[in-house]
Amino acid sequence: MTGTLNLVGYGLSAIGPAIATGMIFAAYINGVARQPEARSILQPIAFLGFALAEALALFGLVLAFVL
């Protein structure tokens, strides 16, 4: 069996953003469920957190192929 260790490394590094995304959405859903009128305040924050976590995951994916 042949392959590159980069992909194993990427698999390990993807755990972090995955947990982060889960926690962001958990907190967001909790917040909206407790206080539905706070949605417009929480939404940009959730978007920002999701974008940052996802950016790290995608950056790792690209680096796994490039390096």
């Binding site: 940009p44 978007f47 920002l48 974008a51 940052l52 950016a55 950056f59 690209v62 680096l63 490039v66």
Partner: peptide, 22 residues
């Protein structure tokens, strides 16, 4: 390529900032 990736990352984040957050 590293510089390109960083530019792309910041361009993507900037567009997201402008479209969805601000």
């Amino acid at each position: 390529i590293l510089i390109g990736l960083l530019i792309g990352l910041s361009a993507g984040l900037g567009l997201i900032w402008m479209r969805f957050i601000r």
